[in-house]
């Protein structure tokens, strides 16, 4: 697969503040690449370098073989982007904003633009200032997709979208992939990346700590299940089950909290032997996952970085 995004030893610092250090990865054409990391990990800094909003201290970043800084105007002809904290002129309507950016791109297919507007159910007649957070996000998403760019660079694109529109967004990304376009998507939500991406890179404290196929997420994906029973249950019934990494009893033995990794099938079948009152599943934040996965096993991030596939 030809690499369409090539990042090599990219480093950027903000004075004393950390940015990113020695970040290297490649994204192949037609790939949907997830860029995962907790808040402040360096995802937005990487994207801002790719979009030539900031200049790297060292290293290189290329899109379609062109240097992101030197050839930024050429690159942006084939890129659509959603910034992390989009801000637009509050006095313009959604329609005016879309028309303005369409003009700055030299015009777009109006039919496709209207399709996107219908699809995300955006009222283009309202002023940007009057939009809810979700509707503001829709405007920014549409402007990124409307010219059918070869590369989409999306910084936490579904933040603020309701589940229905998130689903619609997933469909848009899927279609982009089917049409052979490339998507670079940053997120701090594991499940979102799992759903839409083919490959992922994980960044933490400015360094890329893991990169590989989406199935590798299983290694780090952990969640919790809490089951409340009508009577006390023996904890041993769950401790040895496949996927369970830790068990804790609650409510005088009438509830168990299970730390999980992988499939919950064995747990559900074991719980069925007892009268269940409720079952709740909780997906920890990526920060929690990192804290447990990368620190509890005692392996520093740099060492893990050596495992980059």
């Amino acid at each position: 697969m030809t690499a369409i995004i090539e990042v090599e030893k990219l480093t950027k610092s903000y004075g004393r503040r950390r940015g990113i250090a020695d970040v290297s990865f490649q994204v192949g054409e037609g790939e949907v690449f997830g860029f995962l990391g907790p808040n402040g990990a360096g995802k937005t800094t990487t994207i801002r370098v790719l979009m030539a909003l900031i200049r790297a201290d060292s290293g290189s970043a290329k899109i379609t073989g062109l240097d992101c800084w030197d050839r930024s105007v050429d690159i942006k002809r084939s890129v659509g982007s959603v910034p992390g904290e989009p801000s637009l002129d509050g006095n313009l309507t959604g329609g005016q904003i879309l028309e303005y950016f369409a003009n700055l791109r030299g015009g777009v297919d109006q039919k496709y633009l209207n399709q996107l507007v219908e699809r995300l159910d955006l009222d283009t007649g309202r002023k940007f200032r009057q939009y809810s957070t979700g509707n503001k996000r829709k405007v920014v998403l549409i402007q990124a997709f409307m010219h059918k760019p070869r590369v989409l660079i999306l910084d936490e694109p579904t933040s603020g979208l309701d589940p229905l529109n998130q689903q619609e967004f997933d469909g848009m990304v899927r279609e982009a992939r089917e049409e052979g376009r490339t998507v670079f998507l940053s997120s701090h939500v594991l499940s979102e990346v799992e759903k839409t991406c083919t490959r992922v890179g994980i960044i933490r404290e400015g360094r890329l700590v893991k990169i590989g196929g989406v199935h590798d997420l299983k290694d780090i994906k952990r969640y919790e299940i809490t089951i409340l029973f009508a009577q006390p249950v023996p904890v041993e019934a769950f401790a040895q089950l496949e996927g369970v990494t830790d068990v804790e009893t609650l409510n005088d033995g009438r509830a168990v909290r299970l730390a999980m990794q992988g499939s919950a099938d064995a747990v559900i079948k074991a719980a069925a032997h007892y009268p269940v009152i409720s079952l709740t599943s909780y997906e920890p934040s990526l920060e929690d996952v990192f804290l447990r996965y990368y620190e509890s096993d005692g392996r520093p991030a740099k060492e893990v970085a050596a495992n980059v596939v």
Binding site: M51, S72, V73, K76, E85, S87, L104
Partner: peptide
């Protein structure tokens, strides 16, 4: 300051 130039600069305008 308020980030309103970012999307403009993501279009092919120098």
């Amino acid at each position: 300051d308020e980030g309103r130039l970012e999307i403009v600069l993501s279009t092919p305008q120098s």
